[in-house]
């Protein structure tokens, strides 16, 4: 099932399918390791619901929903 990273539920894991959008923010997402094929785990959301905290490539990254909605995730089934 395809989902935006911003729509992932806490505890869900998935593989990055594509990174949309353009410009410097997208470049930054690439530099931080958000590239197709990488596994992402949505660890938690900040107290006010945003930003998100994800685990990828063995480290913790935080980003906002606005930035995360450009990342398309293939959600792993039965892995909640």
């Amino acid at each position: 099932m395809l989902k935006k990273l911003s729509e992932l539920d806490i505890g869900e894991t998935g593989l990055i399918k594509n990174v949309e959008g353009e410009g410097r923010i997208r470049r930054r997402l690439f530099d931080m390791g958000i590239t197709p094929g990488a596994e992402v785990y949505l660890r938690k959301k900040a107290p006010l619901g945003d930003p998100l905290e994800i685990t990828l490539r063995g480290y913790e990254l935080t980003l906002r929903k606005v930035e995360a909605c450009n990342v398309i995730i293939l959600v792993k089934e039965n892995n909640k």
Binding site: I25, E53, Y59, L61
Partner: peptide, 11 residues
């Protein structure tokens, strides 16, 4: 625009 927020959370 509001500047982006993409940051590492060190352990």
């Amino acid at each position: 625009e509001v500047p982006p927020f993409i940051m590492e959370l060190p352990s």
